[in-house]
Design a protein around this nucleic acid. Structure first.
Length: 586
DNA sequence: GAGTTTGAAACT
DNA sequence: CAGTTTCAAACTC
């Protein structure tokens, strides 16, 4: 069924998109809304772009609105963007639902929309609005910038048929709040290096722009936008009796007690492990902007002044995570290395100490190098091949020859560019916006490049992106298949190398696991005490590892020193140069 | 599935 | 800007 078809919606007062009719229809059911719309319509001063024409296609309209109102806003979480840009055909705003997602409606229709979260298809939200006509922010679809489609709403105007009314509503909403359609959740601008993903949390860094105002839910129910977005309450919040802070017993109990969350928890713990593996400890320092509501008591429970209470909480919490840990009856739930008491079971990533930041840089360098070399090698090969065929009667090969020559130039550019250190995060400015000038990216890649502004990510991505950019300043699509092959080869090699790297990491982790298991087992035997850490039962057969439990695992630096080994062989450069010389000779 | 609770959005 | 009302989602039974 199509968008806004009668099956899903009650009979509309307006079946056409006639503006006047739509406006009239709006007047019928709710004068408030009519007034609201008149208010904006008469204003005419709504700072909406002139491109916002009634004749605009929905998507166009949305892009226009989006561009006007969402210029520099922090990007929403990636999955949302992916969902919107790749899947949803009725994308209305590029920053749709940073509004917190809504779980599947129990009344889900037979043909639900889908969105992708973490590459997992998921039903799109479906509203149940009755009185708002889906033209107010009450409506999650409207707020997310999407048309209602397959929703259970009544008297819905958030569809193509009522585009005029909808547009007015958008204007009205924007007039009230220019940021109404902007993401509610923003990544912390300072969290890039302080990033830590606590077990049971996904978006620790993210922060609700406006903050919640919860009073009774303790911010531990989905009434709370922060909780629903899976982020901690921040200093932006004005909530009361908040339990959605780092170290909260209730919060941890919530995550740990619910068996349904176990899988999620494990996955997130794995994320934490991976994240924590970068650096010297499993968990890095606590986040800087987390409050501790329990300490509001010290400032007075009615303290609503953020400048006092929040900051106080914040400061207190930042300086001493230990108290919260000591308050927590849940051992090992999540502890920083500095907060672990002797009786606590400390979780430490099996990858701790293995990967160091410089290793990532090395990895990036290698990937860039390999990619450039692959491009050069491939184009050289093609060139040689073409050179040979050039001698033959020129027929259909002419075009392919023309393809390859510029490609060769690009390859050269790449190789030279690769000699420059492109690891610098400063180069991260080459985001998706540059993509049109550079290498055509897959939608997914493009989405990644566009939406992920995490400096760390960009530091990783930028080399490839900048390389692609640097390599394609002179040519692009016109050269078609030839470069496509090169890109494919580059991608293949880079991914292969990255896979190899990950395999190494996994191997190192497994070694650590084995040793930890042995240690746990030995302690178990010696102390006859239960080991809480799940690693304890990992392998009882690995007793041959006993005796080496105190030895340090070979640091990743060792294997990373073989980062160069990620390169197929060190002779590749020479090889490439040799081929280059051959070409010059030709 | 109906009724209640909750907090954001809208309104005064 | 604070207080109130409206609204729809979340939640409970």
């Amino acid at each position: 069924m199509g968008e806004g078809e009668g099956v899903d919606y009650p009979p509309k007062n307006v079946s056409s998109s006639d503006d006047a009719a739509a406006a009239a229809a709006l007047d019928v059911p709710a004068k408030k809304l009519a007034r609201q719309l008149d208010f904006t319509g008469s204003g005419g001063a709504v700072p909406l772009p002139e491109q916002l024409q009634p004749q605009s296609q929905p998507q166009q309209l949305q892009h226009v609105v989006a561009q006007s109102q969402l210029p520099l806003q922090p990007q929403p979480p990636l999955p949302q963007t992916l969902a919107q840009s790749v899947i949803s055909p009725q994308v209305l705003l590029p920053h749709p639902s940073v509004r917190v997602g809504k779980p599947d409606s129990p009344k889900a229709k037979s043909r639900p929309n889908f969105e992708i979260k973490d590459c997992t298809p998921k039903k799109q939200k479906q509203c149940n609005c009755k009185h708002s006509k889906c033209l107010k922010l009450y409506c999650e679809c409207f707020a997310s910038g999407i048309y209602c489609d397959g929703c259970n709403c009544v008297n819905c105007y958030n569809n193509v048929e009522n585009e005029a009314a909808r547009r007015e509503a958008v204007e009205a909403t924007l007039e009230r709040n220019p940021n109404a359609f902007r993401p509610k959740i923003a990544s912390s601008p300072h969290g890039a290096r302080g990033r830590r993903e606590e077990a049971g949390e996904v978006l620790i860094l993210a922060k609700h722009n406006k903050g919640c105002h919860c009073k009774k839910s303790g911010c531990l129910k989905k009434y709370c936008e922060c909780f629903q977005a899976n982020i901690l309450c921040s200093e932006n919040c004005k909530c009361m009796d908040c339990k959605n802070f780092e170290g909260s017993e209730e919060r941890q109990a919530l995550f740990h007690g619910d068996q349904n969350n176990n899988i999620v928890y494990m996955q997130q713990a794995a994320n934490a492990a991976i994240t924590g593996a970068i650096g010297s400890s499993g968990f890095s320092s606590p986040p800087l902007s987390k409050k501790r509501k329990g300490q509001e008591l010290y400032f007075g429970p009615t303290t609503k002044d953020p400048s006092v209470g929040r900051l106080g909480q914040q400061a207190n919490h930042v300086r001493s995570p230990a108290p919260s840990s000591s308050l927590s009856p849940i051992p090992g739930a999540r502890v920083g290395t500095s907060t672990v008491g002797p009786s606590k079971v400390m979780y430490r990533s099996l990858l701790a100490d293995i990967i160091q930041p410089q290793h990532l840089k090395e990895l990036c360098s290698v990937l860039v190098l390999v990619s450039g070399q692959a491009a050069k090698t491939l184009t050289d090969q093609k060139n040689l091949k073409d050179k040979h065929t050039e001698d033959l009667p020129e027929t259909s090969h002419a075009s392919s020859t023309q393809e390859q020559l510029p490609s060769q130039k690009e390859a050269d550019d790449c190789s030279s560019a690769n000699q420059i250190d492109k690891i610098s995060p400063d180069n991260s400015s080459s985001d998706g916006a540059d993509a049109p000038k550079g290498r055509p990216m897959s939608p997914g890649t493009l989405a990644l490049m566009c939406d992920e502004q995490d400096p760390m990510f960009m530091a990783t991505a930028s080399p490839i992106a900048s390389m692609a950019h640097a390599c394609n300043t002179t040519s692009q699509l016109p050269y078609g298949q030839g470069m496509t092959d090169v890109y494919a080869e580059q991608e293949r090699i880079v991914l292969t190398k990255f896979r190899d790297f990950l395999n190494r990491v996994i191997t190192m982790g497994e070694i650590n696991e084995t040793k930890c298991s042995s240690l746990a087992r030995s302690e178990l035997e010696s102390q006859n005490e239960p080991i809480i850490n799940g690693a304890g039962n990992a392998s009882a057969e690995t007793t041959q590892q006993e005796g080496a439990t105190t030895s340090t695992v070979p640091p990743m630096a060792t294997s990373m020193s073989t980062t160069s080994s990620l390169v197929p062989n060190n002779g590749v450069p020479e090889n490439g140069e040799a081929k280059l010389e051959v070409e010059k000779d030709i």
